[in-house]
Design a protein around this nucleic acid. Structure first.
Lengths: 217, 217
DNA sequence: CTTTTATGTGAACTTTTCTTCACATAATAG
DNA sequence: CTATTATGTGAAGAAAAGTTCACATAAAAG
C-alpha cells in the first residue's frame, strides 16, 4: 500500500489529516517541520507527500524543492490557505504534482491522492517496460553489433550495414532493425537511413558501460 | 591488424625493431622514452608493447607498471640485455606478458608476438561471452526479480523465493535458478541456498545502473 | 519412524524468437 | 527507359527459451 507523508506545522491540522488518511486506509507518517520531513524522506520511501504551504523557517515552496531533490519519485500535493495562481504556478514548476487550497472537501483530497498514486503506478510500469525492451534488444548479438555501428556513424543504410556485418540475407537484418525500431532504439529518416533515437543513444551508452563494467576483473 | 608500440631509448635498436615489425606486417609506432610512450598509450589503442629494460629516467620495470595502468588490456613484452630470473619474475608480477633477453632470434620475437596477440583475441572472446551471458540472463524478468532479491538478502532458499515471487510451480523457478547458475551469476552453498557470485554482484550493480540510466528522462 | 516439506531431474509441450524464402516496389545508374 | 540495386512484406519453418508434469530423493517436523 502507498505510504504518505504529512508535513504540516499545525499540530491539530496535521492530526486531522492523519485521521483522514487512516480512515482511507493509507499507511502514513507525520512531520512537523521541513527539517524533520527531509529526514524522514531520506530515511524511508514515501509515495505521496502532503505539504502545507504556510510553514515557519523555510517556507513551503523552498521545502518543496528540497523534498524533490531528496525523493524525486515521490508525488507532492501542495495544500495552502492562501491560494493564488502565481503560487500554484510556482509550486507546479518546483515539482508539485497537485495544488489544493483550504478549505477543501475530504473527498477532493482523497481523489487527488488516488490520482497521483495511479500516475505513480503508471510511471513505474513505463519504467519497467523500458528496461524490458532495452534488455531484450540487447540480448541479441546482431542487434548489439548494429547498435555499436553508431559508435562511429550517425546514420547507417540497410545494405551498407548488411555488408559491414557480413549478413547475406538482408531480410534478416531488416528483422533486427525492425525489432530495434519497435523498441524505440532506432528510427528512420525520410530517406530510409537508420539512426539512433534519444533513447537509443542512452542504450549505446549503457552497452559501453556494461562492457567496461564486466571486463575488468 | 594488431598495433604494436616499440619503446626503446636506443635509436638504432628501436629502428631495427621497427623494420622487423614492418616486414612482418604489423602496424607499429615508436617511443624513445617512457614519458612519450605513456602519452601514446593514452592516445591510441596498442595491442602489444615491446619494452626495453635499460632506459634512462624511470627504468623499464617502473615504466611497466605505469603502462599497465594506462592501458590494462595491452600485452607487454619485456626485452632486456641483462636477463636474470629475479628480473623476469618482477617483470611478470608487474604485468608483463612475456620476457625475452638479448640477443634473440627474430623468429623467437615474432612467435612471441603472435602468441600474445592470440591470447588477446581469446580474452576478447571471453569478454564477449560474459556480456552475452549477462544480457541473456537479464533479458528475462523472472531472473531479474531473482537477482533483485539479493538487494536485501545475502542468501535465498528455493521455496522461500518461490513464495516471495509468487511462483506456484517450483520447477519453473529451478529452471531460472539453473540458468543463472550456468551464467555464473549464482552459486549454491553446501546447504543448497543460492547466493550471488562475484560476477553476480557486478550484474546486480549493472541492473541498478541500467535502472537509473533508463529512468531519468 | 512416518509424514510433510524442500530440493531436484528429465521429458513433453508451448511459446517466443529468429531465419529463410518467395515475392514486390521504389530508386538509381547506365 | 531498362537493368540493377536498395528497401521492404508476409508467411513458413527452424531453433531457442520457457513452462508443465510426472516422478524421485533428502531433510525436517511431529
Amino acid at each position: 500500500m502507498s505510504k504518505i507523508l504529512i508535513v504540516d506545522d499545525d499540530k491539530e491540522y496535521r492530526e486531522n489529516l492523519k485521521e483522514i488518511l487512516d480512515n482511507a486506509g493509507y499507511p502514513n507518517d507525520m512531520a512537523g517541520s521541513a527539517k524533520q520531513a527531509m529526514q524522514k524522506l531520506g530515511d524511508q520511501q514515501f509515495d505521496v507527500v502532503l505539504l502545507d504551504f504556510m510553514m515557519p523557517g523555510i517556507d513551503g515552496i523552498n521545502a518543496l524543492g528540497e523534498f524533490k531533490k531528496i525523493s524525486p519519485n515521490s508525488k507532492i500535493i501542495m495544500i495552502t490557505a492562501f491560494a493564488s495562481i502565481e503560487n500554484a504556478v510556482i509550486a507546479i514548476k518546483k515539482g508539485a504534482s497537485e495544488y489544493i487550497s483550504k478549505p477543501f472537501k475530504i473527498e477532493a483530497l482523497l481523489l487527488m491522492i488516488k490520482q497521483v498514486i495511479e500516475e505513480l503506478r503508471f510511471e513505474g510500469n513505463i519504467k519497467k517496460l523500458k528496461l524490458e525492451g532495452t534488455l531484450s534488444s540487447l540480448s541479441n548479438s546482431i542487434r548489439r553489433e548494429i547498435i555499436r555501428l553508431f559508435q562511429t556513424s550517425k546514420k547507417i543504410r540497410l545494405m551498407e550495414t548488411a555488408r559491414k556485418l557480413d549478413i547475406e540475407d538482408h531480410t534478416k537484418l531488416i528483422f533486427h532493425l525492425k525489432t530495434l525500431r519497435a523498441a524505440k532504439i532506432l528510427r528512420q529518416d525520410m530517406k530510409h537511413a537508420y539512426m539512433l533515437t534519444k533513447e537509443g543513444k542512452k542504450v549505446l551508452e549503457c552497452l559501453n558501460i556494461l562492457d567496461n563494467y564486466l571486463s575488468d576483473k
